[in-house]
Amino acid sequence: MRPFTYTRAATPAEAIGSAARIIAGGTNLLDLMKHQVETPDRLCDVNHVGLDRVERDGDGLRIGALVRNSDLAADDAVRTDWPLLSRAILAGASGQIRNRATTGGNLMQRTRCYYFYDIDAPCNKREPGSGCAAIGGRTRLHAILGASDQCIATYPGDMAVALSALDATVEVEGPEGRREIAATAFHRLPGTTPERDTELRPGEMILSVRLPAPLGGRQIYRKVRDRRSYAFALVSVAAAVGMKDGRMETVRLAFGSVAAKPWRAIEAEAMLAGQAPSADLFDRAADVVLAGAQGYGDNDFKIPLLRRTMRAVLAEATQETM
């Protein structure tokens, strides 16, 4: 950890527009600072600014940026009306970490790419222009969708995959005022600027996440990983499907750990909506999702894994209950 100065903000206004780096739960930032992957010289502690409540927001919900992952997953409204979100959060990290991890911090967590974490390796995300050690190296965790020749890292989180499927929006405020960013557009693909993970601008702070009205239907979050708990996803699938008269009426589908952002499958959703579920249809929808998918050796398996998991999740979500 490089030396830094520490201040504690009492209100969001003290953090907004400041050149200091926001620290919330600290569970990602301090991890990276210890490795000197992150080297902020000023920290602003936002744990005492409020923004720690889950509130009704019309038919929807407004989740403060400082709401802890545990509280959000256990929130009564979330459990009953947005179970996909509870499920995704509960699939992540550990009880201890979820008790500290915040809504804002979770969205902002950085990739787990091994080389990003190693300051002795070239990495365009960490040090633009230095190269990408993952290409030609070990890639078990890496992207199969939306990568570039500059960076093939994934966004590793779970919660944001659900938020993306649920059409949440992220409310942020900076020196130039407030704005809302769709969760689906919050994270960026690497392109030629892999150092920018998200659309958040310097000086902006996440204030809250807003959920639109409940979707209903079957909601499933399936996380596939190397051990049963306390491990990041290799592939995760978030699905919410509402059935009517044997056909899929609403379909939401998003994938985690396959790209630099939660991968919302709008095209596949459109293809499925209004149709009767069938294995063949699911397969064709998977073709659409995977068009352009590319593996980098170690992670080639993610392509069939995504397809199979997606099919199984859709089958489960569309199964008529007896």
Partner: peptide, 28 residues
């Protein structure tokens, strides 16, 4: 679960921590 992944280019241990070298957890 367990495998130390090495980088074929320099022999470095890639997954050199308890998050990525997966020893069994309680649920396993």
């Amino acid at each position: 679960h367990e495998e130390v992944m090495t980088d074929p280019r320099d022999g470095g241990f890639v997954n050199r921590d308890l998050a990525e070298y997966h020893i069994p957890a309680n649920l396993d």
